[in-house]
Write a protein that binds this DNA or RNA. Structure first.
Lengths: 247, 247
DNA sequence: TCAGTTCGGAATGTATACACAGGGATTTGG
DNA sequence: CCAAATCCCTGTGTATACATTCCGAACTGA
């Protein structure tokens, strides 16, 4: 049940502390305190904090350790838009290079499984977890289809940010009213993206990828208005390293 | 003359070892060996290796340390293309939000300084170093003009890859025949990008940013054919973690 | 009362010692 | 002679002790 190394365990634990809101944005993360809480030495904690700082969940202070990173609502919107940009680029490159048949088949198979979940509007919410997995699998295959390791690496770094990954947004959104319509619309776009890739229509594939992010942005806006994210993220979101323009 | 911390010193030293080709792609990086060579303990070396693995210069092996990352020619091309994508996006967002006058002025001022360097085709090579600085400053201002911290972060992570940053490519290319024409063409695009931002023409700004990367890709191709990069990068470039598609 | 300085403590940066796992070389059996 | 298993050794993972720096608070002087 435990991870192989203490460092991995520390990373997961600290990430959970941040995501769950136990520690608030801006709050200092003292090594000894974390090591004590996690029953391990400072060494793996330090290593995990170093990793998390590169992933963007914590920020490294010059000479005095680390603090939980603050995210403004605009940051979340920007992250979603950039994810659409990268996914659109992946779709375009897959179309331009001529994706192999088995790759398109893989994508189609995932979409068929999602369609099956959506057939019954009254019971689909019992299968949200399956949808999360399938949706994540689709986006993973989409990035892979570009066969571009640099893009894949950039994508991985982007979706490490909270609520930038496909799964995070689905988990936070599915229970809101009207979510079924958004999900079915998104699924329609999924089909169109794969169709574009299979047909070699790179430009259409790219812009569908971007448009797909627009739905996500709308959903994110509803989540923010509904207050689902406000407590954790908006509390200290006003402060960020940006220029002090309007002192 | 030395950095503040041993960790920073270790990071710089190991990066230099990789860039200068003292250690070859694929080669293992043993902590004790590095600590011995740099006259420090394993702790800061380990921390630096962790950082470098997130930057992409070294790859972390499951349970046995680190190795120098391998870059294929395609990886370099992909990195340049993605840089164009991000710079184009930054330009579009700057145009769409309506960049402030002083920001456009800053960009124009840098371009005027570059123009001054290019006035005399016979002596411009004496000022390559100044051009490198100004070019880097322009691209930095361009990214800043989007006022998008997430995009800026992604860009920073991308240009940490070898030969993905504007400066790296200029330094490797300026001495090749015909470089003057490429640089003046690139400068023409710089002016057009700023003009588009000032005029609020987001679409034109974005595609100019992408097209700007095409010149860079061409220059990269010439560098690869000229053998300037072959020794360091191409030697072990064939091997990469990708799928074993063509046995 | 306020400003400057100095002292103290707490947390990070670094070094070293120990435990453990993985791999390669050697040896043994067929 | 080849294959497989075992042993040893190199190197990473972790813990802990020490050094150092940075911030804050208290004290002193004007």
């Amino acid at each position: 049940m435990s991870d192989a190394t203490q460092t991995a365990r520390a990373g997961k634990a600290i990430r959970d502390l941040i995501i769950s809101g136990v520690v608030l944005p801006g709050e200092r993360l003292a090594e000894v305190q974390l090591a004590d809480r996690l029953n391990m030495s400072r060494t793996p904690v330090r290593s995990a904090l170093n990793t998390l700082s590169h992933e963007g969940l914590v920020e490294s202070l010059p000479g005095r350790g680390y603090a939980v990173a603050s995210f403004a609502a605009d940051d979340l919107r920007h992250a979603v838009e950039l994810r659409g940009l990268l996914e659109g680029t992946a779709a375009r490159q897959a179309a331009e290079r001529g994706a192999a048949i088995f790759e398109v088949d893989q994508l189609n198979r995932v979409l068929q499984d999602i369609d099956a979940l959506f057939q019954d509007q009254t019971t689909w919410k019992d299968h949200v977890h399956e949808y999360v997995d399938l949706n994540e699998e689709f986006h993973r295959l989409l990035i892979e289809s570009a066969q571009n390791p640099v893009l894949a690496r950039l994508y991985e770094q982007l979706i490490k940010l909270p609520f930038a990954s496909p799964s995070d947004l689905v988990v936070g959104y599915w229970h809101l009213p009207g979510s079924f319509g958004k999900f079915t619309a998104a699924q329609h776009q999924h089909w169109a993206i794969v169709e574009s890739i299979a047909a070699g229509r790179g430009t259409r594939a790219e812009f569908l990828g971007r448009e797909h992010a627009e739905i996500t942005t709308k959903a994110l806006g509803e989540m923010l208005r509904s207050g689902a994210l406000s407590r954790d993220l908006m509390a200290t979101a006003t402060r960020r390293s940006g220029p002090a323009a309007r002192g």
